[in-house]
Design a protein around this nucleic acid. Structure first.
Lengths: 237, 237
DNA sequence: GGCAAGCTGACAGCCGGCTGAACGAGGCTG
DNA sequence: CAGCCTCGTTCAGCCGGCTGTCAGCTTGCC
């Protein structure tokens, strides 16, 4: 739950090529934390701001790949920021997060240059999917297709091929694999993988991660994931 | 539309050939209702406005795929709106609906950038045909025929072939399929499919999407649609 | 050998998705 | 007009796969 620290840390530059740099502007503490952890869990670097003002500052300072923008903020309307950004020529993709009853805002948002919107309460999985969709739209087809051993991992399409044959993965299985694939050469600790699995707070006290690694190995082959005893896991090669 | 360059880039293609997003501007209650129901029945999402002003607002707010525009409205001439739209660079196809004695308007309309016109009272079937023609013209040659598994999906013609044999789909069935076929590799959430099915605001709280997926599978084969638990659907392959 | 860390098969509960059935609206036919 | 059909929508019950947990096993390290 210290994710905010972590987020800032690798926003810097080092991991730029892998995960996206995401700015989350959302005042609701619970939702904000959930989204931050979930998105961080996907391997992206998240900065979470709770006010329009902080959001504006951040958006000006850093060249984000994606902005998640709540429309109703304590110190103003999210749309204001969006319009400002667009007026200054920023093309950063923006996904709007909006309450269920704000249809007009939604329309206005799209009209002001937002790229997509999600209605609260939303499914985190759907958030992930839309983020990918938006990112892909921008990156063209350049989103990573990763070759690892006899695996082809298509992050953007949520697909894995084993020696060319598609393999079905469940949600959690994919989450684990994607977490590893997001930073192919990095060692990822169990704790970090857990964060990717359980977005918010849920204290899981068992060997879930091990179980999913095991399931992945069964489906994808022994070597798809490498174990580093006492440290974590890494994508096989 | 107003969503400016970037918006067009994806909005245009996003909903293109599926259930189209149609804006109907028509003050006559009887005709308006008839057209709305007919067009909705084809599987498109229709917003119906009865005044020029509302129409203008809607057209600015939402990136429609097609506008059906009555020329004689209580609060002004439809042509005004058309010219405005074209002046701001909107390329949304517009079909003009006009009474038979307004020949000059018709000509002026075509000159102002309308794509086609229909003379009242018109045959609804003809309206359907012209809509298809216009939409096809816009889709260009870029996405006519899609091969997916043993299916051939002819988006522009609103036809599906299963192993070469044409299959009859109802309006909604087609809308769902087309929404998926529109972005063949993308994962489409239930929410997004619903959006393609219903106009803004109609809150549908049931498993409609599941039902239509089920019916599609019955007609087109188990694998025509892939389920991604908790995330959405994707066209089979 | 002994200990810690990691692996994996089994299992029960659950949730999401699937689907048959029913109903009303509307259109068409005779 | 009655009868028939199709389509859209809703609902309830079913089903299967996903998931978390645990126990017993293997592996690696000292």
């Amino acid at each position: 739950m210290l994710a905010s620290g972590r987020g800032d840390a690798y926003c810097g530059s080092r991991y730029r090529e892998c995960g996206l740099r995401v700015l989350l502007i959302e005042d609701d503490a619970v939702l904000g934390e959930a989204v931050r952890d979930f998105v961080a869990g996907l391997g992206h670097a998240v900065d979470w701001m709770q006010t329009l003002d902080d959001g504006r500052t951040a958006a000006r300072a850093v060249d984000y790949d994606l902005i998640l923008l709540d429309l109703r903020l304590p110190d103003g309307r999210g749309l204001t920021l969006l319009t400002e950004l667009r007026r200054t020529g920023a093309v950063t993709p923006v996904i709007i997060l909006t309450a269920h009853d704000q249809i007009s805002d939604r329309i206005e948002g799209l009209n002001s240059g937002a790229d997509d919107y999600l209605v609260k309460p939303f499914n985190l999985g759907e958030l992930g999917a839309r983020m990918l969709a938006v990112a892909r739209r921008y990156a063209g087809s350049s989103l990573p297709v990763l070759e690892a051993g006899n695996l082809t991992i298509q992050l953007a399409d949520r697909r894995v091929l084993r020696e060319g044959d598609p393999v079905d993965l469940s949600g959690r299985e994919w989450a684990v694999l994607a977490r590893l694939a997001n930073r192919p050469d990095a060692i990822v600790s169990k704790g970090e993988i857990e964060e990717a699995l359980y977005a918010f707070g849920s204290e899981i006290e068992s060997n879930t991660v091990e179980v999913y690694v095991s399931r992945l190995r069964k489906k994808l082959g022994k070597d798809c994931v490498e174990t580093l005893r006492g440290i974590g896991y890494r994508l096989g090669r």
